[in-house]
Nucleic acid binder design. Structure first.
Lengths: 356, 356
DNA sequence: TTGTACGCGTTATCAA
DNA sequence: TTGATAACGCGTACAA
């Protein structure tokens, strides 16, 4: 690492001595309250007055002191977004959507990473950042149904994901069971009969894994097919590497299989990787489908069929829910709201073949 | 989309009526100043007093009002991070690192997305968010050497990337020329002689493309090899799709080639995709190397050799630079600082082969 | 070692 | 339609 100081220019230090509403008021020959009124779009102002104030604001380059406003209003227009980590494409893309949705509503997002560590997820809920945030959008991966009290907070909270369903907080999710059913049905429709699922969490009864495996089972049952244990493959972490490993194990064991349902895209991409290594034709011999529709799925080789969970809709809804509670202020919070977002099957080459 | 209200429980509304320092002071039988002293770790406090205050804080569940503190101190402990978009893995991972580095120093990050739109990049520099942010870490993709005045701001600003080098602001970058030289040299060391580069921006003289192509040229020159125009392939956007297209065009034209240097990982992964489609053996017939070391490169098929730019170091340095200026307050800002971070070549299967 | 009192820049409540 | 003035909650001279 090399450090150097460029000669000549000075770099920006602190902002110039602040010009306040008082200065603007003096310049415009009005009271400070009138300046405030102009700034806040108060309607009953004589046009001439408004013009003088606006001119003064422009002349002086006045910019409101946000901290003072926040102190006075008891609100910051900041919302927290807590996700496991941005390095995971699904959450990076979710954050992208949330930031856009928030921006459209004039609020700013503070991103916090929990690293999927239980202790940090708890900290996110009661940590110091809640002090300067109007509300929180939180996608937990460790906290579950046993932690309901932890979600009983006194600020607007919107939960994302499939870990908890009965917390005293708003919740935005999608129908994971139906979506997994659709993914499996898609494979069945293509004539596949030995469909493996990769990413199961055997012991668990909550979370995305359990729900998606259930959808897989339901689809097979509806088609009159048995759920073969050797086709339900475990993968604790939903990463490409574990998806590749699970797929390799499946093939090594000589299990007969003609399709793989990765419980998320990372797993399915890992499966694609393993199949590629072994020169297995996809979808000729084995079709593959994932879940999440991260951008990468449109560029893998072959492109990956998947379930699109409606990220933008989820993000918009989550932002709207927090802001609704923020706007409600102290008034009767009312019961938690549950929103189930739409999903769509996106069929690509990994199931349809090169022509797709 | 389905919306429902859960029966029973109330969801969290607004925080309970705030308990202030006054309340704590009263409860502890001390003055508000003493409470403040305890909170700020002022050393000269009688242990007994401190204990009483801390007990009162615990009893009352006191939490400091951050807006009031910010107003008083003229600082928010918030820094902005402006990137093109989080959907691009490189920037998602950079944001991840910056957020971690900031957290370690007790500051919080506000992520802003410019979408690589010139107008939005300008807005980031002088928009309203600068009002409640102590400083900004900015990775521009559109603004360039012609916009130096835009970077002359009166708040702590740290620039990232290769768009501008002479702005009156701190700058953290890496030696793109040397890194590209190393990538090319790696291919030369493996005996490759017809090395294509994908992602060139023919007209440009600034930015990552120009610098990396220069490194490529230098390495070839040092090896006594000519730079063949037909091996320097353009790709405006550095996406997987453009990398795949450029690679396809290269092959379609029947150009003889035994290695491809993607100017970033997305391009290289796209090249891998195109080569896979055409059943070209990598690295048997064509070796591929990228640039950035995004996590995906460790999981592609085959795994991708690349240049690791030292993300964490860059993030830490950037955060330290802004905070140093924040701490300096109004005092003589001094000249802009330039930091050149280290890089490392990461050789994987796409150049070394399956055994790697 | 601790307390008093003022000011940070806004918004809100009145009254005019 | 506009103005005076009191909060908002905390930091900090200055005093004790």
């Amino acid at each position: 690492m090399t450090t150097a100081a460029a000669p000549g220019a000075r770099a920006g230090g602190r902002r110039a001595a602040a010009v306040t509403m008082h200065d603007v008021a003096a310049r415009a020959g009005v009271s400070i309250k009138t300046v405030s009124n102009v700034l806040n779009g108060y309607p009953y102002i004589r046009p001439a007055t408004r013009d003088r104030v606006e001119a003064a604001i422009a002349d002086l380059g006045y910019q409101m002191n946000v901290s003072a406003r926040n102190l006075r209003r008891g609100r910051t227009d900041l919302v927290g977004l807590a996700v496991p980590e941005l390095s995971l494409p699904y959450f990076a893309e979710l954050a992208d959507s949330v930031i856009r949705a928030a921006e459209a509503r004039g609020v700013t997002v503070v991103v916090e990473q929990t690293g999927s560590v239980r202790e940090r997820e708890l900290e996110v809920l009661r940590g110091p950042r809640r002090q300067f945030t109007d509300g929180l959008i939180f996608s937990p991966l460790e906290l579950g149904p046993g932690d309901l009290e932890a979600f009983a907070v006194d600020y607007p909270l919107v939960l994302l994901g499939e870990r908890v369903f009965d917390a005293p907080a708003d919740h935005v999710t999608m129908d994971n069971v139906a979506a997994a059913r659709a993914a499996t049905q898609h494979l069945l429709d293509l004539g596949r009969r030995r469909i493996a699922v990769v990413g199961a969490h055997p012991g668990e009864s909550v979370g995305s894994a359990a729900l998606r495996v259930q959808g897989y089972r339901e689809a097979l049952a509806a088609a009159g097919l048995p759920v073969r244990p050797e086709l339900v493959r475990e993968a604790g972490l939903w990463h490409r590497s574990t998806g590749a490993e699970a797929t390799s194990a499946l093939l090594d064991e000589g299990v007969e299989v003609d399709a793989i349902f990765g419980l998320n895209d990372a797993l399915a991409l890992g499966a694609l990787h393993a199949l590629h290594d072994r020169r297995v034709d996809v979808p000729g011999r084995i079709a593959v489908i994932g879940f999440d529709d991260v951008e990468e799925t449109a560029f893998s080789s072959p492109t990956l069929s998947t379930i699109a969970p409606g990220r933008d809709q989820i993000a918009r809804t989550a932002v709207d829910l927090v802001l609704a509670r923020v706007a409600a202020g102290g008034e009767d919070p009312g019961p938690p709201r549950r929103v189930v977002a739409d999903f769509a099957l996106v069929a690509r080459a990994s199931t349809l073949g090169a022509g797709a």
